[in-house]
Amino acid sequence: MIMKDIAQVIEDTAVGLLKLAATELPTEVKEVLIKSENTTEGALGKSQLHAINENVRIAESEIKPMCQDTGLVSFFVKVGDKFPLKSEIKTALIKATKRATEKVPLRPNAVDMFKGNTNNNVGIRGYVPWFYFDLVEGDKCEIIAMPKGGGSSNVGKMKMVPPGKGIKGVKEFVVEAVAAAGPLACPPYTVGVGVGGGEDMCMNLAKKALLRPLFKYHEDESIASIEKELLSILNKLEIGAMGLGEGPSVLDVHMEFAARHPASLPVGVVISCWALRHAGATIDKEGNVELHPH
């Protein structure tokens, strides 16, 4: 039997994931955008959603990025204890990012503050692409590529809410953050909210919340009901498609909670534009690749 070069499998798979994420929206995102176009009454909102859907359709059929901003690249990786590679996963994903930049192509979005654009989406100081590593049981490695646009990242917000304000304070801040985003970041939005941990962890959780498929609510009923409540409240802002007041403002809201320090209540809000892009795959220890449903 010929052993597969696992590092090469990871690299090739990640190039494919970056390409898939950039060119094709996850099914449920596509579906809800089409449904929104059909149910939006105002011509202004309908025309914006029509343009978005037409663009999504062409991007997918021509295998071209759906937006000129192909995002800052990050990877969510779960490594099984018995998976043969560890740090080489990182090396392979960095190589994949460079290759995908050429191949897809992705817009070069990694800018060094002093040396300028690296032209390959890889930072010269070691932090981009950004990795979220997790250690899990088993012998597999799960990789999710998430390229996130600059426009919608610009409207992300974090607040250390006074703990006395409790869950009402959390909701208030989410409303404020999404209202401040307003028309700025290509709505309809998907909103990720992270509560607890520390000032950095809440933002991590908020971003991770965006990976949960739309309309799949938190397994904890009390959290799920806040997600649904926020979804309905946020749509009363009437931001509308591309911020023109007609059609949905927010497609879905997902929340993740961590324990918090008694003296703090960190809340992170990470907002995705309509182009909620991510794609994942699981690789086993022999190098067999299984793409996640997309």
């Binding site: 202004l44 208030e172 409303v175 404020e176 209202a179 307003g182 028309p183 409240i233 009363k236 802002l237 009437e238 931001i239 509308g240 911020g243 023109l244 007041g245």
Partner: peptide
């Protein structure tokens, strides 16, 4: 300016929601 009009409407809706 549609965007400015929309922003004002969002701001007013926000106050009501809060």
């Amino acid at each position: 300016n549609l965007t400015e009009e929309s922003k004002k409407n969002i701001e007013a809706n926000k106050e009501k929601i809060l």
